[in-house]
């Protein structure tokens, strides 16, 4: 059985808008509609989309904070909003922008409090705390009040806090936002290890596509409240209108290359840029170019994931 199962999920909001001086109009806005997906235990899934696409609405429904308007939703076999407190023991949530720790308390006190709140057995608590404190290098910070921590330190604290009770699922909302490159790298490494060793299911929303490239074998792209893509990262590249680029260095300058299946985007001296659909094979294009021109060098560029998603959004 899938650990997360969503079928025809829908969430609408009533919005009141001023229409004229006193009159107000009520209208219904779909934050999420026809959302269906399932996630297997142990998967690491990236959940991306532009601002306001429905990402946080989805996460709120998955955690039980928000009741879906319609549709079927099961997380760890539970209906999230009806059995929110029960579900809370099975999931960990890291809100990137706000801390789950207590601002004025030392890190250690926050952790102890969470132990009580989640009723973590002392042995488990000690084992987890030692482990995460070591892996995330929090040892020197345990007695520091949270408000004095840097963004990266706080994020590490938040992740430890979310994992103390051994959740089956970990939601991460923008976990690397505002972190420097080194911290980002360390965090990704930690998450990968967590998934490897404990089999924790990971669902992360992010604006940083390198997070996805480093961690997720599967990506779900949401736009205007519906899934526009759900599949492996590689598929995201080939789908949509994205194109691969063939950079051709000719021996001599020449007019724009004309071969079937590709178009020439740019000419700069002897160097020309040809593009063709990302899901088409490069071989016929390369062969055609080599047959008609004196080629000094060839190189192939994969489409940047940002461009791919931009294409998806434009098309969706």
């Amino acid at each position: 059985m899938s650990i997360i199962e969503a079928r025809d999920l829908e969430r609408t909001f009533a919005v009141r808008r001023r229409a004229g001086r006193l009159r107000r109009e009520r209208s219904t806005v779909h934050a999420v509609r026809d959302l269906s997906f399932s996630i297997e235990a142990g998967e690491m899934v990236g959940y991306i989309g532009p601002n306001g696409a429905g990402k946080s609405t989805t996460i709120k429904m998955l955690t039980g904070i928000l009741v879906p308007t319609a549709g079927h939703l099961r997380v760890a076999g539970l209906d999230p909003s009806a059995r929110r407190t029960e579900l809370a023991r099975r999931i960990g949530v890291v809100f990137g922008q706000r801390t789950t720790l207590w601002w004025d308390l030392p890190l250690r006190d926050s952790f102890e409090l969470l132990q009580r709140i989640y009723r973590v057995p002392p042995a488990t608590y000690r084992r987890n705390l030692d482990r995460y404190v070591e892996l995330l290098a929090l040892g020197d910070l345990l007695d520091t009040p949270v408000r004095q921590l840097s963004l990266g330190q706080r994020m590490r604290g938040d992740i430890t806090a979310a994992l103390l009770h051994d959740p089956d699922i970990l939601y991460l909302d923008e976990p690397t936002i505002g972190l420097d490159v080194v911290s980002k790298g360390r965090l990704r490494e930690f998450l990968r290890a967590l998934n490897d060793e404990r089999g924790t299911t990971l669902l992360l929303t992010t604006h940083d596509l390198q997070d996805i490239e480093a961690l997720c074998s599967r990506v779900m792209v949401v736009d205007h409240g519906t899934l526009v893509f759900d599949g492996p990262l590689a598929g995201l590249r080939s789908g949509g209108g994205a194109r691969r680029t063939l950079v051709v260095d000719l021996v001599d300058e020449a007019p724009p290359i004309d071969v079937p299946g590709a178009s020439t985007d740019r000419v700069e001296g002897p160097r020309q840029w040809l593009s063709f659909p990302a899901d088409a094979s490069a071989a016929p294009v390369v062969a055609a170019v080599a047959a008609a021109y004196d080629v000094a060098d060839l190189s192939l560029q994969e489409p940047a994931i940002e461009d791919v998603i931009r294409e998806l959004y434009a098309g969706g």
Binding site: K60, G64, R84, T85, E86, F95, Q97, R98, I117
Partner: peptide, 14 residues
């Protein structure tokens, strides 16, 4: 307003 209510809602305490 600050969203800390969401944080409390995902904890297993009333």
């Amino acid at each position: 307003r600050t969203g800390s209510l969401d944080v409390m809602l995902v904890r297993p305490v009333p």
